[in-house]
């Protein structure tokens, strides 16, 4: 019987046969040996299950959990429930990692007694075969040079200092359990709530400036490329985040950051959505969601990014000539 693992790695797998081997090799070859790997097969219909079976045979640290196809959020929750490690790492089957990613992040975590560790990552573009920096995943200028560091010491929007995905972070399991954090059971944006609540609640956050993980871009199976099936998920995530901040009594303090982020994320979703759902999303934002998210009715100076505010105004009022929209904005303000 092994001692308590230092890190539990949770990997939801859904039809990932083309990259699964590289991902598993990358995890099993980590220099940090005291880990457990929980692969949750979310009802794959390709060869993923066979690959998992094959790997399971050669490494006792790998555990395979099967579930019918109910989404990555549910799969991560399943993995979370089964995990026993000191820290949790949530990775995606199509990404790959530096061999000492877990060791480096774990050391950071232990030395700062941290509840969350965030490390730098970059993008790997499959077609061109190049790596691109992602400076926005860790905005160093907004971080405190002293400890303990919690989200109140950030000097930028709390929801934009890091990105709302889970795979470039390590979470202390005890901390996650204490606050009952879980993933939303939906197709995309299922980790946003988990990550941001953790950031808001954490008393000790550490960061690592080295690039430790590589996100694969330009693969057809990646969920973010087929968002037309789940274009409303981001709204559910934002709504749930707001409700939870209110429940925790932190909404008033974070309202301005939240609203700015909600607008930013709504616009990002609109910009990157393709096809006929784009129109539908635009209509929903205009008719309901901007209001329900609290964005509507805020004055211009409430927004950190004026360009985003203008985009918001264009959606609400349509493309008026600039001078007219300027005047009408003036009247409302």
């Amino acid at each position: 019987m092994m001692d308590r693992p230092k890190v539990s790695v949770i990997v939801p797998v859904y039809n990932a046969q083309s990259h699964l081997r590289q991902c598993l090799d990358s995890i099993m070859g980590q220099t940090l040996r005291e880990i457990e790997i929980l692969c949750v097969d979310d009802g794959s219909t390709d060869g993923s299950a066979q690959i998992l079976e094959e790997y399971k045979g050669c490494d006792p640290r790998l555990h395979v959990i099967m579930q019918e196809n109910i989404g990555a959020g549910a799969a991560r929750n399943r993995g979370l429930a089964e995990a026993s490690g000191e820290y949790l790492s949530f990775l995606d089957a199509d990404d790959f990692f530096e061999p000492d990613m877990l060791e480096c992040a774990y050391e950071r975590a232990v030395s700062g007694n941290a509840q969350i560790v965030v490390f730098r990552s970059d993008q790997y573009h499959t077609e061109e075969g190049v790596f691109r920096d992602m400076p926005w995943t860790l905005r160093s200028h907004a971080l405190a040079p002293y400890r303990p560091m919690d989200c109140r010491t950030f000097t930028d929007n709390v929801f934009k200092v890091f990105v709302g995905w889970a795979w470039d972070k390590l979470f202390e399991r005890e901390f996650v359990l204490k606050h009952g954090l879980g993933f939303q059971e939906q197709r995309t944006s299922n980790d946003l709530l988990f990550v941001f609540l953790a950031i808001v609640l954490a008393e000790r956050i550490e960061t690592e400036e080295r690039v430790l993980a590589h996100q694969r871009r330009g693969t057809s199976s990646s969920l973010s490329n087929t968002r037309d099936k789940s274009w409303q998920c981001f709204y559910e995530a934002l709504k749930a985040l707001r409700e939870n901040l209110i429940r925790l009594g932190r909404y008033q303090e974070l309202e301005q950051d939240y609203i700015n982020y909600a607008l930013h994320f709504s616009l990002w979703n609109l910009d990157t959505l393709q096809g006929e759902k784009k129109k539908e999303l635009r209509r929903m934002l205009k008719k309901h969601w901007f209001r329900e998210l609290g964005i509507a009715g805020k004055r211009e100076d409430y927004f950190y990014n004026k360009k985003e505010y203008r985009q918001y105004w264009e959606i609400v009022r349509g493309r008026l000539p600039r001078i007219i929209s300027k005047c009408s904005r003036g009247i409302v303000d």
């Binding site: 405190a144 040079p145 002293y146 109140r152 008033q252 303090e253």
Partner: peptide, 23 residues
Amino acid sequence: KVYCINAEYDYIRGILLKDPALW
């Protein structure tokens, strides 16, 4: 010691934020 004062003012803000009216 350089950032002690920053940490102290974080602590004070934490106390004030416990009651939004106070903040």
